[in-house]
């Protein structure tokens, strides 16, 4: 195309793209996310109640639930089921801790062919790594702030 037309079209193009952009059907996506996300939490609730009834103290029950849910997320990923549910559930499977497990298992499996050290070992954190970096760092920051508030409040 000629330079003049090219310049004109490159300016119009953003509007053309926006006009042609098919939208995700957000209502449908949200219903799926709500129902499946809610169900995953109910599975967590089931195990929480179960461990409590087995005599696990309230303050420790979270550890048990987290471990079981992470196992379930990891196992369903290994079986190749998690991604097929996630296609519909979206954030409903990404946001629960099972999604955190999926984000670790999926690259670990994927990069097995690059070896167990630099493939599995290094790549398993490509998605989950940032979550740990930002989560742990911010917990250190709030811990330090809490320490000084406590110190000066004395």
């Amino acid at each position: 195309m000629e330079k003049k037309l090219e310049k004109q079209l490159s300016e119009e193009f953003k509007n053309m793209v926006d006009k042609n952009n098919p939208q995700s059907s957000i209502i449908k996506d949200c219903i799926f996310a709500f129902v499946i996300g809610g169900l995953i939490c109910d599975v967590g609730q089931f195990f929480m109640n179960m461990f409590l009834s087995l005599g696990v103290p309230q303050e420790n029950v979270g550890y048990y639930v987290a471990t079981v849910m992470v196992f379930l997320g990891a196992f369903l990923t290994g079986l190749g089921i998690y991604d097929n549910v996630a296609k519909y559930a979206g954030a409903g499977t990404i946001v629960p801790i099972t999604g955190f497990a999926n984000s670790i298992v999926s690259p670990a499996m994927e990069f097995k062919r690059e070896g167990y050290i630099l493939g599995v070992g290094a790549r398993m954190f490509i998605i989950a790594g940032p979550v740990l970096v930002y989560g742990i760092s911010s917990s250190v920051i709030v811990g330090i702030i809490y320490y000084f508030i406590k110190y000066f409040a004395k």
Binding site: T67, A74, A108, M109, L132
Partner: peptide, 26 residues
């Protein structure tokens, strides 16, 4: 404190992640 409070989840994710990678393939 932070890591202690979440150690179960993190260790489970790393351990099961490794285990599943050994057992299954994509």
């Amino acid at each position: 404190g932070g890591v202690t409070g979440t150690a179960a989840g993190i260790a489970a994710a790393v351990f099961f992640g490794y285990l599943m990678a050994i057992i299954f393939s994509p």
